[in-house]
Design a protein around this nucleic acid. Structure first.
Length: 291
DNA sequence: CGATTCCCCTGATAGC
DNA sequence: TGCTATCAGGGGAATC
């Protein structure tokens, strides 16, 4: 599932490929994903003939800056991921003309939105669950939409003091939920919150207000280590996420707890537990991460 | 207002 | 074999 490291990987990979390209056409079979403009014809009009000037990440959002002055925003949600290549429709199915991972991975046959560029290349949104959000916004609308997001955890000026101050605003909250709260810090989801808390040896249900200064420091440090490491290896690919080339990310061998229920903790050998936390699941070591 | 629940969606998997 | 029920989950809306 694309979180900060996956979105960052996508943006970095795409930056080399699509800046300067001009939209020729757009296809979709999932109009519901396109939230703005509501009418697909209007959405198309906003893109055709426009050039991509730049691409950036903010939290888990991908932002394409267009020559019209507007911005194409894509949030991949759970199973969305952007792929760069060339596809042809053969018997109702899009088939990659590019050899390699794009062609072989059955996960990438769920293309529901394709941007066609003037030079023949394409950018496709693969999204098994069709939860992704796609919209075109003016700079003002974008500003408003992103204004609620918390700071970027990897910004150099996001110090421990900033981190502590933001986290403690939710002092009754459970630390895992607070880490995943996009208004507190932007970009962390289920996988990396589990990984950060395992590394910091903190129980996911621990109330923020009960964390000691030292424990907060461990979480901050783990966050600042795990996220860049995950970016370095191109994100995780335990389920749906792929890089724009179709390649899998390299984080899976580094994964310590997420989806390792019943397996041994790499630190102490105890069995990793999975418990429900709201609508999500939390994975942790019951021995290393005491409440 | 804050906390919780529902809902969007569909492939994989388990149970019968 | 084939049907049905359950699960995964980001985030926004609805509800308690």
């Amino acid at each position: 599932m694309p979180e900060l490291p996956e979105v960052e990987t996508t943006v970095r990979d795409l930056k080399k490929k699509i800046v300067g390209r001009i939209f020729l056409d757009v296809w979709t079979d999932a109009k519901k994903m396109i939230k703005k403009p509501k009418k697909f014809e209007d959405f198309k009009k906003e893109l055709i003939g426009k050039e991509i000037l730049d691409i950036k990440r903010r939290g888990k959002n991908i932002l394409f800056f267009l020559s019209s002055g507007k911005v194409l925003l894509i949030h991949q949600k759970l199973t969305g991921h952007l792929l760069f290549g060339k596809w042809k429709k053969i018997k109702k199915e899009w088939v990659s003309e590019i050899e390699g991972p794009l062609k072989e991975d059955p996960m990438n046959k769920f293309l529901h939105l394709i941007f066609f560029f003037k030079d023949g290349w394409q950018l496709a949104l693969s999204d098994l669950r069709k939860f992704a959000k796609v919209e075109i916004l003016t700079k003002e609308e974008l500003e408003k939409e992103l204004s609620k997001l918390g700071p970027e955890p990897l910004e150099k000026d996001f110090t421990f003091e900033n981190f502590k101050e933001r986290i403690l605003k939710k002092k009754k909250g459970k630390i895992k939920q607070v880490l995943m709260d996009q208004e507190v810090i932007a970009g962390i989801g289920n996988i990396y919150s589990d990984e950060i808390l395992w590394k910091a040896k903190i129980h996911p249900f621990k109330r923020v207000g009960k964390l000691s200064e030292e424990e907060l420091k461990r979480i901050y440090k783990a966050m600042k280590e795990i996220l860049p490491k995950a970016i370095e290896v191109g994100g995780e690919s335990i389920s749906d996420y792929r890089r724009p080339s179709g390649e899998r990310g390299g984080f899976d061998p580094l994964r310590k707890v997420y989806r390792r229920e019943g397996e041994k903790c790499f630190r102490c050998g105890a069995k990793i537990k999975r418990v429900k936390l709201g609508q999500r699941s939390a994975h942790f070591c019951p021995v290393c991460q005491k409440l």
